[in-house]
Design a protein around this nucleic acid. Structure first.
Lengths: 250, 250
DNA sequence: TTCAATATTGTGGTATACCATCATACCATA
DNA sequence: TATGGTATGATGGTATACCACAATATTGAA
């Protein structure tokens, strides 16, 4: 089990998550509730692969590990179920959602549409300091690729698209894309960590960057779709390869 | 408050939702849990307008009305929050999610993409008894329009698109579209119930039907997008008109 | 009379105990 | 060895107690 989910050393109900003030420096009265924290932790734990797909999420151990009550765990599981990250098996309880290529293909297809549209809109109407933001995101991405830390690459890629979606004013679409990305996070990890090929990804991103900044909506959309097509092709290789194993687990 | 949420007359914990066997004829051991039932009831209550947008969803009264415990209510609210139907205001609790035109426009835009794509794919590759299913859905839609019952029209429209999405193999996209439709259900009701114009909607659907059956993907996509564009234009009129009122409520 | 401080109330958030049911694993016996 | 029953554990569901916080009402003082 992940170290991310370690329980507090003592059962301190006044401070069950070991949240120190130093952890929340920005906002004095952080309106963040326990549920939000647990949600965030479990979501990232699943996305970053600390829970295996198909692994059971038993309530009471989770309570112990996170140092919170069952109510919180149950509400969190309900939320993650709605997000598609968790699946409820009748009379068995929640497990980390499984993924087959059929679903993954659908998800890549939806992303192609939504991200392509966002890039196109963005190219047409961007302004302000957007160019600087996108350049910075691209630079961060480049830097993280040299670190060969897949998690950094994933975050930088996310940031890159986040800038695009928000400039396009597509906040809801971004929300959808993020959730979809959560569901295929395992694939993203595989495509990123199997990095005998970091450069093709980066050249794709550069192409997107150039197309948007030159206000070529068509080219921007095409570049995004090419990027996703490439990613999905790599993902397909991996998923096909391990399909047998996954289905044996289920 | 809605009659849909009435509590059982007596506190019968063996049968708290008044589920009779006659309600579940198909499956003997119905795996449907209390949560599922409450979720379904509250979702339709919100979608069908029995709760006003911005209305507070106070836990304890909901417990009384539905005859279930707070745990169930809270889990349900968490699920609906993830669906975007419910919004949590810090230190105030959940309310029925509000909607402004900016969000609605984004939602219509996403629908335009996903539904257009589904129709196009469908036109290219449909087979089997799909044509019959779609024809039947269209007939049902036509019949329900003569009833001038907006709820029937809404269900028939949903069914029509459901057939398309499933034939295209876009189950995940359909899931997304359904949730988005839930969030703009109030607008859909307005556009449907303000029925000085039932026929334009139906002619749009007929155009979609014809285009798909004639395997013209381009035309199918265009017809779908025209339909949504029309709907969004009507919705915009209504939402703009009542924007002041809504924001005063919030 | 008016303003401010305090008390009350309602709500959300959290924790915990309890029961029923279902599924599985284990064990004892034929 | 095979089979059936029991034990265990997990979940679903319910109830309750406690605390924090915010809004409102009430009361006291200027």
């Amino acid at each position: 089990m992940s170290i991310l989910l370690e329980a507090p050393t003592t059962a301190d109900y006044k401070n069950p998550m070991n949240i120190e003030k130093s952890d929340l420096p920005k906002i004095e009265h952080a309106p963040q509730t326990l549920r939000d924290i647990v949600q965030e932790r479990m979501r990232t734990a699943i996305i970053e692969g600390h829970f295996a797909p198909g692994e059971r999420l038993v309530e009471r151990p989770l309570c112990d590990q996170l140092g919170v009550s069952r109510t919180v765990i149950r509400e969190t599981i309900r939320y993650l179920e709605a997000e598609g990250l968790v699946e409820i098996i009748p009379n068995r309880g929640p497990i980390v959602a499984l993924l087959d290529w059929d679903q993954a293909e659908q998800i890549y297809d939806i992303r192609k549409q939504l991200e392509g549209s966002a890039a196109a809109v963005c190219a047409q109407c961007y302004g302000g300091d957007f160019a600087a933001q996108l350049r910075e995101a691209l630079a961060t991405l480049n830097a993280s690729m040299n670190d060969s830390e897949w998690i950094g690459v994933m975050r930088a890629t996310t940031r890159f698209y986040e800038v695009i979606f928000y400039e396009a004013g597509h906040a809801i679409a971004w929300d959808i894309v993020q959730r979809l990305n959560g569901r295929i996070s395992r694939l993203r990890v595989l495509t990123l960590s199997a990095k005998d090929r970091p450069k093709p990804g980066f050249s794709h991103m550069t192409a997107i960057y150039d197309a948007i900044l030159s206000r070529d909506a068509q080219a921007a959309q095409a570049a995004v779709q090419a990027h996703i097509l490439d990613a999905s092709a790599i993902a397909q290789r991996f998923l096909r390869k391990e399909t047998t194993k996954v289905e044996n687990d289920g």
